[in-house]
Write a protein that binds this DNA or RNA. Structure first.
Length: 208
DNA sequence: ACATTAAGTGATT
DNA sequence: AATCACTTAATGT
């Protein structure tokens, strides 16, 4: 079990427990980890790769919420686990994934037993909360250009490459807007020398 | 060469 | 920012 990411956050005894109780899993890009209505029995700790978390609105449209990167866990899974609620989100492997599944009963125990676990949970919540606040800001003030820039940076971080293979249509769906709008915003960014546009491909330049 | 799909653009609300 | 209607460009068969 490759726990290097967590070596500095968790105390040694907790790391040992993770080795014992955690179930290591490998998933391929595109695999669904959790679907709407699923009961959450485990907390995922991401070792490598990343998870895309999204939610469905009333019209059945999917809305992207956030990514879970290595060194992180999913805030929704904490709350669902603690409250014994069904999942309101869907989690899909964005890339090939290595993760450790922590059964929810031990997670309860650890909350009491390990200070480092508790603060990890709190930090996960805090980070997500901050992000949601920012997201609400940009939606409320209709700054679609900011949301687009954010998405592109995220994709870059995710793939480790400044070349992104995606169509304008796909971006539009992720941001719940129309293709025309995305095309125009991208064109603007291109004119500002922040990226280059090709068919099915966007190349990010350094100063985005 | 033709059809299909992605992307660009002006006008309108 | 969204929608329409249309054009242009790239790609597959």
């Amino acid at each position: 079990m490759n726990l290097i990411h967590y070596k500095n956050i968790f105390e040694p005894e907790l790391l040992k427990e993770i080795e014992q109780q955690g179930i290591e899993k490998h998933l391929n890009a595109g695999d669904t980890i959790i679907d709407y209505g699923d009961l959450i029995r485990h907390i995922p700790l991401v070792l490598s790769g990343s998870i895309k978390v999204s939610r469905m609105n009333d019209e059945g449209q999917e809305l992207f919420l956030y990514y879970v990167h290595p060194n992180e866990s999913c805030a929704m899974s904490f709350s669902c686990c603690l409250m014994q609620r069904k999942s309101e989100i869907k989690a899909v492997a964005e890339e090939d994934l290595e993760l450790i599944m922590i059964p929810n009963k031990v997670m309860d125990e650890w909350m009491m037993k390990y200070a480092s676990w508790k603060s990890f949970v709190m930090l996960t919540f805090q980070a997500r909360f901050d992000e949601l606040l920012k997201a609400i800001d940009s939606i409320a003030f209709q700054k679609l250009d900011e949301r687009l820039a954010h998405l592109l940076k995220e994709k870059k971080k995710l793939t480790g490459s400044s070349v992104i293979n995606i169509t304008h249509q796909q971006i539009a769906e992720e941001l719940a807007t129309s293709r025309v709008v995305i095309s125009r915003l991208l064109k603007q960014l291109e004119n500002q020398n922040k990226l280059l546009l090709y068919r099915n491909e966007i190349k990010l330049l350094k100063d985005l």
